[in-house]
Design a protein around this nucleic acid. Structure first.
Lengths: 197, 197
DNA sequence: TTAGCGTAGTATCGAGTCGAAACGAATATT
DNA sequence: AATATTCGTTTCGACTCGATACTACGCTAA
């Protein structure tokens, strides 16, 4: 009976709470709540398939109704823009506005965290990342949650040539930067878990 | 420029959100929100110096006003008991009621997490714990937050004999189990960071 | 074509969170 | 004794959140 997993849970939970507090602090100039800041951060990292209310709500673990409310607020404040999808007119697409980009640039929501990890060697961080990533994947498999991930580990990812990529699921070409964004169609390659270089 | 710290942030943040969602799920039979569940878990682990609204609010990263509200609700539901401190009559002490204990026993808020970590070797978990603990400590030092910890690493901790312990700050004797609870008077031994046995 | 079903997003409701600020009571400090 | 500080509560308004109902669109198949 090893208690370490519970200690890890406690740490993740506490750090999560602190990050949320930090998010509140960061957003208070603009009268934003932490969820709003998290939403903006997500949108800054989501690829073209994943910039929808649906994907956002699954990423943040809130219901689509709540997500809709938050997006309404962010729209009113001019931090995001909403536009309809051409192919499926039910789908709403989201993007950061210039103001939204500027906000993230000024507020630097991740600064405090980067500071807090300054004394930890890159190697230890990579190990922790690997363990937590595996935990996340397992948790999501257990709960039928959406996976989210970058092209690098995705089974739909195809390399056409040195600099040309393609998503086998959607059939689109992808640029280099595209492949490093977050995608909610992500599916882990093979069934093995957590190989980090 | 290593991006690992940001990836780690993202993982912690997502896992934190998932744990909050899990907390909501666990509490919905009793009509509890995730914060309430977290509060109960905290109280089940807090030592005699740390079972106050103040300590709870700092632990959860919420204001004392909010904590007061949540505690009111938990009291109404009969999950906790509140009583006055003998020495300082401003201080309110908190304890789980029998119902509260039973709730935690039945609901097992940590079960999903334990499941999610089942494939990760104890060693990798301990490494992750060590890295995250250090991050937490640094973060708290940066933000003048309260540290929280167990006697084992605390500079006030004194061992009187094989089985008798003492808190040098408060001057009290401590039982064995006492020394393994969470204390908000915790102060890291020395100034070095993150020695894990 | 039309009917039926599923999906994306929105609207509304009520309970509750959350920070901010004001407040009261007990304790510390001077 | 007067003043300051600390612990906790109360109140306020904006917002979250899940649940539910609803609209609009797309898919499928008779």
């Amino acid at each position: 009976m090893d208690k370490s997993p519970l200690v890890l849970l406690d740490l993740v939970s506490r750090l999560g709470n602190l990050m949320r507090t930090e998010g509140r602090r960061v957003g208070q100039d603009e009268q934003l709540q932490s969820v709003h800041v998290e939403a903006l951060v997500y949108l800054s990292k989501a690829n073209r398939y994943s910039n929808t209310p649906q994907a956002l709500s699954e990423y943040l673990g809130i219901t689509k109704g709540t997500a809709s409310q938050s997006l309404l607020l962010l729209d009113r404040r001019g931090l995001i823009e909403r536009y309809q999808d051409d192919l499926d007119r039910r789908v709403v697409r989201l993007r950061l506005s210039a103001t939204g980009e500027q906000f993230l640039y000024d507020a630097q929501p991740q600064l405090a965290w980067q500071h807090a990890t300054r004394n930890i060697s890159p190697n230890r961080i990579r190990n922790a990342v690997s363990a937590l990533r595996e935990t996340l994947t397992t948790f999501q498999l257990d709960n039928e949650g959406t996976a989210f991930g970058e092209c690098a580990g995705c089974q739909h990812f195809e390399r056409l040539s040195a600099r040309a990529y393609r998503c086998g699921l959607m059939g689109d070409r992808l640029s280099g930067p595209d492949t490093r964004k977050i995608c909610w169609l992500y599916e882990e390659k093979g069934s093995g878990v957590g190989e980090d270089e």
